[in-house]
Design a protein around this nucleic acid. Structure first.
Lengths: 212, 212, 212, 212
DNA sequence: GAATAAACGAGACGGTACGTCGGGTCTTCTG
DNA sequence: CAGAAGACCCGACGTACCGTCTCGTTTATTC
């Protein structure tokens, strides 16, 4: 995310929204063309037609530019509208997430950002705040509503639900590089909503040659 | 892993095993001192007292050096001796794995390599072949023996066992950065061996601020 | 010589005159300390306290840096004032040249640049334009004035005069490494102007161990 | 020149004349293809199909290899037969020299070796001994014969004759890169012999418009 | 004829410098 | 006065050769 510094009533030229969008678009395009390792601040500035300083002024690293680009693409957010029951809310959440990650490039960027979060601890913190926690909060909203409604299963525990859902998703993305498909959605729903859980609803891998 | 090029009966000086070990040791030490981002080929060469070319000759990237260093440290391999029953074999496997990853530095390197595998696709392939598949094959050996013995539970399916075991481990390492402890071993055993599984044995996350 | 690219009304930071002088001074000093073969761009940059790129940006080779350093030292130019007669003009020119080359380091650099001009053809062109032609034109000015005055001997031909004067100088510098002394000036004047013949010439005995 | 170490009655394998010739030929060819700056010991070894050590064993530098290659080409030597008079001896010497330097590649190598002699003092010594002194001694032989004969002009002094002859030749080769032509031979003879004029040419009434 | 000795092609070694790339900072000019 | 242009210092990159040091092999000489 960019720095969003307050601009109210300050003297001087306003931040150029045009430059900002050009930078985010350039970083998104360049990622697809040269990959994350080949992505450079210099390259983004050249493609965006701006000076390097304009990037350094607003973002701390190329990973943050990319994270911001994802947000602007409107690809990161999932609705949490009320669909009447826990099961349907959860299905809607999973399908939204599945839709989010259906694009190859978006998946690649997500994996890359998660990877960069391992390597750059400072970015890791910003990534968790700006993305991971938001996603987790969305699911928490669904669970809270279910609890108020009274249709939340007694187990697994809420925190375990969070771990299962996101753990399975990330494992597929990072280690097996399998797509998130509707079979997975069904399996997860069967495990998390029904009681007793069906025996086959554990996080499933179909390609053993790709897994850890 | 390094290139292991065939050396049978060729003319010319032999590869120096001394240099190889110095390089692996240097990369391991330096990782601890300056982190992965601060790790450079130049730095490794300087610490190892060798020329840069000697590294470039045998390893394609600093990540491969680190991967090789892990292997040489003897930290990567887990025994699959027969302990009499599926339950005991599985417990031994999990405890070996837990012991493998008990060191902060080893965990950091594993996370880093998994991260680098996302960013550098070529290294990703080598990482899967040289590490992930090997680990998976070890657990598959345990499962196969159980099937021959006749004490393999009818479910979850073998491939699902693999996903649960390694998925949970990696999720803890990458996302929550929790240590692998004996509670986790117990929970996994309860889920995978006993029937019916206790309701709380799903991959658990305790710190929501660290999870996905 | 450096690139002297036009800087009129462009945006961006100006070339740092401070860096330029530091680089020229460093190359001059280092030449004296480690010789031309030991002179490196890295060494110059380190001594000058600048980045290598700043050198590569403005000079194509270490020889060009050295050539520029000589020019800045103000060591390269010889006056061609009118002394009344061809003989006296020529004597003045030769004595100025002799004075130019009285310093050990300046001689060494000149020999080195002439040598490098043989080896690097592109530099050779620049060396001729920036130095040799300038010197040759100076002598041509003296000859032209003599012709207008009418006291130019009928032979040797003017072009041969140029060859003999500079040929002898360079031959001494390059091949015999003899200093340019007043005996040589006298002998050349006697040969080229003819009357009056040289006063008492005990001709300079060459050192046979050093000669061609 | 190569090291020519004594091989009399020693045990062990003899020096391979085949390798020696392959190395000299390779260095001569490569000089023409990539120039002196691009010439490397590794390149010569590869082209000659030999190991680098075989070159280092016998020659101290690439310049020495090239010098040896010239010698083997038989291009370096000039006869000093008696032609009856100083003028005719001198003309023969100059024309032989002119013939020596008629090949573009031979000239280039001579210039290069003279250049390298400036830069590498050790090679400079070997170059003087193996080439320059030999040439100078040849001309000295002519002068000594003239003195015995009594037809040596009173001036210029013998050492100045040497300086002028070789100086002019080298200056043309190194600085102006002009070919050595018969006009130069005539002009030098006229200047150095004076009276009587050379038998086969009328003394050059210089045409001042004749461009150098 | 075995042992010794030297030179051979091959190729890895520890190094040094190359010329380039990019990071992040610091002017200078333009809109 | 923000922003583009671009020079600055810095450091690592991956490469090219340097000159040296094994290797295993091929001659020659000596014992």
């Amino acid at each position: 995310m960019d720095k969003q510094r307050p601009t109210a009533g300050r003297p001087g030229r306003k931040r150029s929204e045009e430059s900002r969008m050009a930078i985010l678009a350039a970083s998104f395009e360049l990622f697809g063309e040269v990959g994350y390792a080949g992505l450079t601040i210099e390259g983004i500035a050249a493609r965006a037609g701006c000076g390097k300083q304009t990037i350094y002024r607003w973002w701390p690293s190329k990973a943050d530019v990319l994270l911001d680009a994802m947000a602007v693409k409107g690809e990161l957010y999932v609705t949490t509208a009320d669909h009447g029951s826990y099961g349907q809310d959860l299905r809607a959440f999973l399908e939204d997430t599945y839709r989010l990650a259906r694009g190859r490039k978006v998946i690649d960027i997500l994996c890359t950002l998660m990877a960069e979060a391992q390597i750059d601890r400072d970015f890791g913190g910003r990534f968790r705040t700006a993305f991971l926690h938001r996603r987790r909060d969305s699911l928490q909203t669904v669970i809270d509503r279910a609890r108020r409604r009274g249709d939340l299963p007694s187990h697994p525990a809420p925190s375990t639900v969070l771990d299962i859902v996101f753990g399975t998703l990330w494992y597929r993305l990072l280690a097996t590089r399998q797509a998130l498909d509707s079979d997975l959605v069904d399996d997860l729903l069967a495990t998390l909503v029904q009681a007793p859980p069906p025996p086959t609803t554990t996080p499933a891998a179909s390609d053993p040659t790709e897994a850890l």
